[in-house]
Amino acid sequence: MFMLPLKILILLLFFCLTFPQISSSTSTSSGGDDATVCIIGSGIGGSSVAHFLRQYSTNHHPKILIFERHAIVGGRMATVTIGGDAFEAGASILHPKNYHASNYTDLLNLTGKIPSSSESSISLGIWDGNGFVVKTLNANSNWGIVNKIVSFFNGIYLFIRYGFSLVKMEGFVDETVNKFLKYYEGVETRPVFESVEEMLKWAGLFNLTGKSLKEELVDGVKLAPLLIKELVTVITRINYGQSANISGLAGAVSLAGSGGGFMGC
C-alpha cells in the first residue's frame, strides 16, 4: 500500500500555515483587491489545499483557480477495475495522525475501512527476488490464545535477528510524527511561515533534508545494517519505489507508514 506522497503533505501544510501572511501581503500590494491563488492539479493535494486556504483565511475570500487536465477531480486517489478486480491507483491508506487528510475525507463523506483483527496478519515475510530472507510463523486461528502464542514467538525471532534496532526505529518514527503534529497547533502557539525551509526548521525537521534516510538511521539512530537492508529498504520501496538512500525527510514519512491503525481509502 502507498502513503500519500511527501510533496502533497508538505504542499498542504505549507499553504495552510502560510496563507494568512500571503493574504495580508497581497492585499497591501494590490490596493486591497482579493488575491488570486492558482493551484495545479485537483487531486487530494490540490483540492484540499483549496479548501483549507479558504477555511483558514479569516479576513479575505480569495479567488482560487484550480487547473486540472482531466475531466474529473481526485487525481491518483482513484480505484481502477482490471479483469473484474479493483485496484487502488494511488494512495490507499491514511495515517491516523494526518488530521488534515482525515478531516478532508470526512468532509467529502468518504468511508474509511479499518482492517478487522481477522484481516490483520501477524506474520512477516521478506522476499529478496530469489527466496525469503525473513519468514515468521503464520497463524490464522479463531483461537485468540493461539494467535498470541505465535505472535510471541515471532517477536522473539525478530529480536534475535535485529536486536534493539526495532525499538530504536519505532522511537525514531514516533519522534518524527510528533514533530509533524506541531503543525496542528493553533495560531496562538505557532508562527506564520514565509517559506518551507522556515516551516521545517521550526518543527525540527529541516536537518533530515540534508541527508539520506540511511545516513540518519546509521549515524543518528544507530540501527543495525541488517535491519536497514532487509526491513527499511522494503518499506521505502513499497511506499516510494526507492532505496534507503532516499531523502531523510521522505524516508521518515515512509517509515511512518509501517505502523498500525491505518484507515483504508
Rank of each mutant, 00 (worst) to 15 (best):
K211V: 13
K211L: 12
S212N: 11
S212F: 01
S212P: 07
S212R: 06
S212M: 05
S212C: 02
L213A: 10
L213M: 14
L213K: 00
L213Y: 02
K214D: 14
K214I: 06
K214C: 02
K214Q: 13
K214F: 05
E215Y: 03
E215W: 00
E215N: 08
E215S: 09
E215C: 12
E215K: 09
E215I: 04
E216D: 05
E216T: 09
L217A: 01
V218N: 05
D219Q: 11
D219V: 06
D219R: 12
D219N: 15
D219P: 07
D219F: 02
G220C: 04
G220L: 04
G220A: 03
V221Y: 08
V221C: 08
V221H: 08
V221S: 09
V221M: 07
K222L: 04
K222F: 04
K222Q: 10
K222H: 08
K222Y: 00
L223K: 05
L223D: 02
A224C: 06
A224I: 03
A224M: 08
A224T: 04
P225T: 03
P225S: 08
L227Q: 04
L227N: 02
I228D: 15
I228Y: 11
I228Q: 06
I228A: 05
K229T: 11
K229F: 01
K229Y: 05
K229C: 00
E230Q: 11
E230S: 05
E230L: 02
L231A: 11
L231N: 03
L231G: 00
V232Q: 01
V232K: 01
V232H: 02
V232N: 09
T233N: 07
T233W: 00
T233K: 07
V234S: 11
V234D: 07
V234K: 13
I235R: 03
I235V: 14
T236P: 12
T236V: 11
R237H: 12
R237M: 10
I238H: 09
I238P: 12
I238D: 14
I238E: 15
I238G: 11
N239P: 08
Y240H: 14
Y240Q: 08
Y240I: 08
G241N: 10
G241E: 01
G241P: 15
G241A: 14
Q242E: 14
S243Y: 00
S243L: 01
S243C: 01
S243W: 00
A244H: 04
A244D: 12
A244M: 07
A244R: 03
N245G: 13
N245C: 01
N245Y: 09
I246L: 14
I246P: 13
I246K: 06
S247M: 11
S247N: 15
S247I: 00
S247D: 15
S247T: 12
S247Q: 10
S247G: 15
L249W: 00
L249F: 12
L249E: 12
L249K: 03
A250E: 14
A250W: 03
A250Q: 15
A250T: 14
A250V: 11
G251K: 02
G251T: 07
G251L: 07
G251M: 09
A252Q: 00
A252E: 05
A252I: 08
A252M: 11
V253I: 10
V253N: 13
S254P: 05
S254K: 10
S254V: 07
L255S: 06
L255H: 08
L255I: 11
L255E: 07
L255M: 15
L255R: 04
